[in-house]
Design a binder for these strands. Structure first.
Length: 854
DNA sequence: GAGTTTGAAACT
DNA sequence: CAGTTTCAAACTC
């Protein structure tokens, strides 16, 4: 069975289709979503976010034992345990599957399980995360037996729970709305097993097989899957649903090393945010559902269920259960190798306020798209929010699950190899090779794993067996210390634990967007950028390269030759920027908002404190177009941060983005802020140009809406809301992800924003008041005024007529416009990011200067 | 496996 | 904020 799984070609898996078909809400099919997020295969199971652990979930003695010796990284548990764990997985999957079916059918929620498993199911997602930790793994194994029993009895319960969630959320409708599920999916559903059958299967599961198959992780896994592997297979076949997920992990581990690496980092970080998840879940049943979808899709994990139940109880058994679920989810996630291959990353806002961006920088591309689709907004603001939260939670969960799964897998493989070969080194190598870096762990010697030097710590996970660290304090036992240290570090740098790589991919599914561009791996960027001097960004010394992302404006690298994208390519020439900047200002006012907003919001760079340069599409370069498209940024969890950074730094962020994004972006405050402050004029200009020349049907509203939304938020929004054109504006505030507690806007920033708004407002309104029939105008205008608000106090006067401006615009401007037009035409949403490198930054001042120069 | 190189993180 | 030191990973041999 494992072999089957492996055999599956994730890249080609129908998963994407499946996801697309799935409605965001439907959690049954959510797995895809999870997958998409998941790009994280790598992180070892063990990774538990310290925070999660904080919860203080009881851990099995075994777990502790494993923790204890630092040197004690050997896996003491016997294959039996592993087998059990595997079975648990399987069971979990089965249950999940069942749950899906049940969910469909069932309406009532039944939290309690006959077996008392209910509690387990109720376990907090957080716990599940904890469980995922390596330690947890061990404990899980021990508990697996119990879990199995409980799971069997609890399956029904879990079903009920999920169902309840759905009902609560009103997801059903969405499900119905969901575009046709893939046939496979349906098939899968139809094939879903009865609880009884599942139970039987679970009972029948042979742990040994799991171990044996270990080499073929997927295979074994599949075998164990509940009885009807068929169902699973169909699942896999379909879109890489659960089965696919299963494959993925293995696959990713074995095949997608790079992706794993990236994911590793990403996933770990995502785990960090696990804390938030619980809240979000608790808050919204929808989120729960979403999580279920995502996770359940893969594993049908019940974490959401438990959470959704909101049960306060946390049993160890529950933990095990959650672990199972997590594992399942991981499997599901893994199913999406394609995503990894594509490197797209998802940024999910976390309701909790923690950054939710989980970037699977690498391969999430397609997945991300799918994800977006899934998230596709309902038009209901709340719904969107819920989706977002759900996505976040789901993502984080999936990530954690992924990690745990991987860890387990690795452990299993390790054992297997060790037992078979008796060569730990071989095992090690194998693990490394297979997992890629999924299980790779730290090797800290002096920092006690309490500094960012430590990958584990930086990722927000505890060190685990795979680690070779010395004097490690990044362990559950030292939870307090870990948390304190984290706080300290965060106090110094709120973004310290934020994902380093931001994926451009626009997060939310905009109905508009259907171009698949988001996925491009190249779109992802390192937040801070690298600082390579000698490696030319061609070695893993380079964080960008290591993350399989191209260098960007934010990079200070020298002689960049990053194969994933040179910094040069990424940035627009300063000239371009300068030119566009000066004149654009007036023009820019219109469109840019939208684009800018989006770009900023989504642009990882924006988030980066570093001043993003104006990101222009390469002038007419082919790459530019693709890049631009790819650059679309998801609102990074750091968006908040970004805003701050912008406020602080005059530099203009780059814009990327698509009309699609607009709606979403409009919602985001971050965009607005960044937009107002940082968004480079250039961007705005470019956008304006775009509009001017190539008005997009959707643009106007979208753009305006987004821009307006931003403005509103900054200015209190009232005005914009009023704007009839900005119907989208109203939506603006809906997205919540910017509110990450971690990186809340500073008061100062807010003030700045307000000021900018004020100034801008005048401009905007003026503009709006102008005849400007073109929505574009409005957007651009609004933007400009805001930014334009020259420090001098001069108000940048937007051209009364964009057309005039355009026509009058000097050569440089035109060139800029042309450039944009070419690049953008087909991709309205795209918004070239303008990065002003260094001096080139396009702060308002710069823009003014440019103008004056012009 | 040891040593070197590299660049991020931390420190001053 | 810039420069320096420390650190651990990546890399080389």
């Amino acid at each position: 069975m494992w072999s089957k799984v492996e055999a599956l070609d994730l890249s080609e898996s129908p998963f994407s289709n499946y996801i697309s078909s799935l409605s965001p809400i439907k959690h049954d099919k959510a797995p895809h979503v999870a997958q998409g997020f998941i790009g994280l295969n790598s992180p070892p199971l063990v990774f538990t976010s310290p925070r999660i652990n904080t919860i203080g979930r009881p851990q099995s003695s075994s777990v502790e034992a494993s923790r204890n010796g630092e040197g004690d990284k050997k896996i003491t548990h016997e294959s039996c345990i592993l087998e059990r764990s595997l079975t648990e997985f399987q069971e979990g999957l089965v249950t999940d599957i069942r749950n899906e079916d049940d969910n469909k059918d069932n309406v009532s929620v039944q939290p309690s399980s006959s077996s008392g498993c209910v509690d387990e199911y109720l376990a907090d997602p957080v716990e599940s995360d904890c469980v995922n930790s390596a330690y947890a793994v061990n404990s899980n194994l021990k508990q697996s037996n119990n879990v199995l029993q409980s799971s069997v009895s609890g399956l029904a319960d879990s079903k009920n729970i999920k169902i309840g969630n759905k009902n609560n959320v009103g997801i059903e409708n969405e499900q119905g709305a969901a575009q046709g599920l893939s046939d496979e999916l349906q098939k899968f559903e139809s094939d879903t097993f009865d609880l009884s059958s599942k139970e039987k299967e679970c009972k029948n599961l042979v742990p040994q097989k799991v171990v044996e198959d270990h080499g073929n992780r997927c295979n074994g896994f599949l075998q164990h899957l509940p009885g009807s592997l068929q169902g699973i297979q169909s699942y896999e076949d379909t879109a890489e649903n659960v089965g696919g997920n299963v494959d993925v992990p293995v696959h990713s581990m074995t095949h997608d090393l790079e992706a794993n690496e990236l994911q590793r980092g990403m996933s770990r970080r995502c785990l960090q945010f696990g804390e938030a998840q619980p809240q979000a879940r608790a808050n919204s049943s929808i989120s729960t559902n979403l999580a279920d979808n995502i996770i359940s899709s893969a594993s049908l994990a019940t974490t959401s269920e438990t959470e959704g139940l909101g049960s306060s109880h946390l049993d160890s058994s529950v933990t095990s259960r959650t672990n199972q679920l997590v594992n399942l989810s991981q499997l599901a996630i893994n199913l999406i190798p394609q995503c990894y291959s594509e490197k797209s990353s998802l940024t999910v806002p976390k309701p909790s306020g923690y950054k939710s961006t989980c970037q699977s920088t690498e391969n999430m591309g397609s997945c991300s798209d799918e994800f977006e689709k899934v998230l596709a907004p309902p038009q209901d603001g709340t719904l969107e929010v819920n989706l977002c939260t759900i996505a976040d939670s789901a993502v984080s969960e999936s990530l954690s699950a992924m990690e745990s799964i991987e860890c387990k897998m690795t452990l299993n493989t390790k054992r297997k190899f060790s037992s078979e070969d008796g060569d730990s080194e071989k095992v090690k190598k194998l693990l490394n090779s297979t997992d890629g870096e999924g299980c790779k762990r730290c090797n800290c010697k002096r920092t006690k794993c309490l500094k960012l030097y430590c990958d584990c710590f930086a990722a927000g996970i505890y060190c685990a067996e795979p680690c070779s660290c010395q004097g490690c304090l990044n362990r559950p036992e030292y939870e307090d210390t870990v948390l304190e240290t984290r706080k300290q570090i965060e106090s110094r740098n709120p973004l310290a634990f934020a994902p380093k790589i931001v994926q451009p991919f626009t997060e939310f599914p905009l109905s508009n967007r259907e171009d698949g561009n988001r996925k491009t791996p190249s779109s992802a960027r390192h937040k801070r950028g690298c600082n390579c001097k000698r490696s030319m960004c061609l070695k893993k010394y380079c964080e960008c390269y290591q993350a399989n992302v191209g260098c960007s404006i934010g990079c200070r690298c020298e002689g960049c030759k990053n194969v994933y994208g040179k910094k040069e390519d990424y940035c627009v020439t300063e000239e371009m920027i300068n030119r566009s900047g000066g004149r654009l200002e007036s023009r820019v006012t219109t469109k840019p908002k939208k684009d800018v907003l989006h770009s900023e919001l989504f642009d990882p760079h924006h988030s980066t404190p570093l001043t993003p340069s104006f990101q222009c599409s390469d002038h007419g370069k082919k790459a530019s177009i693709s890049k631009l498209l790819s650059r679309r940024c998801l609102p990074s969890p750091e968006s908040d941060l970004t805003i701050l950074s912008y406020a602080k730094s005059p530099r203009s962020p780059r814009t990327s983005d698509s009309n699609d994004m607009l709606l979403e972006t409009s919602k985001e405050k971050l965009d607005i802020e960044s937009y107002c402050e940082g968004i480079g004029y250039n961007n705005a200009v470019v956008l304006a140009d775009e509009f001017h020349h190539t008005p997009l049907p959707n643009h106007p509203s979208n753009v305006i809406g987004s821009s307006l939304c931003k403005v509103r938020e900054l200015t209190n929004l009232s005005r914009f809301q009023l704007d009839p054109r900005s119907g989208s504006l109203t939506s603006g505030g809906s997205l919540r992800w910017h509110s990450s507690p971690i990186t809340p806007m500073s008061p100062l920033d807010e003030i700045k924003n307000l000021q900018g708004l004020d100034s801008a407002d005048g401009g905007l309104f003026d503009i709006l008041e102008d005849d400007m029939p073109e929505i574009l105008k409005d957007t651009s205008m609004a933007i400009k005024p805001v930014k334009a608000g020259s420090p001098n106090g001069k108000r940048v006067s937007p051209p009364h007529n964009l057309h005039q401006l355009g026509s009058s615009s000097s050569g440089p401007l035109r060139s800029g416009r042309k450039f944009i037009l070419k690049a953008v035409p087909s991709f309205p949403p795209l918004t070239p990011c303008i990065d002003s490198k260094g001096s080139g930054t396009q702060s308002k001042n710069d823009l003014q200067e440019n103008r004056s120069n012009d």
